[in-house]
């Protein structure tokens, strides 16, 4: 198969799969939570996200 065509198909498949999975997850997961302030600095709240450092 032509490598350019293969590359385009691979790229399209990658973005389709990623978008599809995000949408599927967003539609099926529990959707309600108290929204954090837009910026952590000055919010008075501790960050709640997970981090690679193990927190």
């Amino acid at each position: 198969m032509d490598t350019t065509l293969w590359f385009r198909r691979l790229t399209a498949l990658f973005w389709l799969a990623l978008t599809g999975l995000i949408l599927l997850d967003a539609l099926t997961a529990h959707r309600y939570r108290p929204e954090p302030p837009p910026i952590a600095l000055g919010s008075g709240q501790a960050p709640s996200g997970g981090h690679c450092s193990g927190r």
Partner: peptide
């Protein structure tokens, strides 16, 4: 500043 924690990937 926005997230309250450093940038992460994994």
């Amino acid at each position: 500043i926005v997230a309250g924690q450093p940038w992460g990937i994994v």
